[in-house]
Design a protein around this nucleic acid. Structure first.
Length: 208
DNA sequence: CGGGTTTGACCCGCGC
DNA sequence: GCGCGGGTCAAACCCG
């Protein structure tokens, strides 16, 4: 009927060790996301990643992209409604999360460290996140922060902006997954999960 | 082997 | 009507 795909023979680049299943198993906001696409963003060197909630009957999607102005800022846009409060069995305690984890004005700890692979605030149910948001919003004033209710008015997509810089209190474990504030050009593969939202070229060693 | 990522192609809405 | 660009699909690939 319609011409289908031609030869799509591709060669995959070797994946990074840290991008293991365990890493992506429990993603930032407590849900499992499956990446289904990635596109280049106009006027930005950083691609945008598309994720869908892997839970059945869950139509939530999210877009993860990096600010072209400040690569240290990761923008996550959620679309849809989570009908299940906490589908993933917690593997740890969200109490270990630093307040900055929820900087994303939206209230969900998310996206720090890069699209879906970050796992900034792993295990937080929606109510917990909302509560957490209320607590943290009062004292956190990061740039470009948008404060929108999460899972409240779901007819409108919401944008969460997480910054991984300007957070001096970030523990090493998070800094590892975050950008160095002054090293936006040093987006090497060592930054891990960045591959998700960075062009592969940027992840390659320039000397290679 | 199943579930997840990668990535080029396809679809479609929108602006001109 | 056409081109562009954002969003999605799906084959190939990878890993536990």
């Amino acid at each position: 009927m319609k011409p289908k795909k031609k030869n799509q023979k591709r060669q995959r680049e070797p994946r990074f060790a840290f991008m293991t299943k365990s890493d992506i198993d429990h993603l930032d906001d407590g849900y499992r996301w499956r990446k289904y696409g990635q596109k280049a963003v106009k006027n930005s060197p950083f691609p945008r990643s598309y994720y869908r909630c892997t839970s059945t009957a869950c139509g939530v999607k999210k877009r993860v992209e990096r600010s072209s102005e400040d690569p240290s800022i990761v923008v996550t846009t959620y679309e849809g409604t989570h009908i299940h409060p906490c589908p993933i069995t917690p593997r740890g305690s969200f109490g270990m999360l630093p307040p900055e984890t929820s900087t994303l004005g939206g209230g969900i700890g998310s996206s720090i460290g890069g699209g879906g692979g970050g796992g900034a605030s792993h295990f937080m149910s929606i109510p917990q996140m909302l509560h957490y948001q209320q607590q943290t919003q009062q004292t956190i004033h990061h740039h470009q922060q948008q404060q929108q209710p999460y899972f409240r008015n779901l007819t409108q997509p919401m944008t969460l902006i997480g910054t991984s810089t300007t957070n001096p209190t970030f523990p090493p474990s998070f800094q590892q997954r975050s950008f160095c504030p002054s090293a936006s050009v040093n987006l090497s593969r060592d930054q891990g999960l960045l591959q998700d939202i960075l062009p592969s070229q940027m992840l390659k060693d320039p000397e290679e």
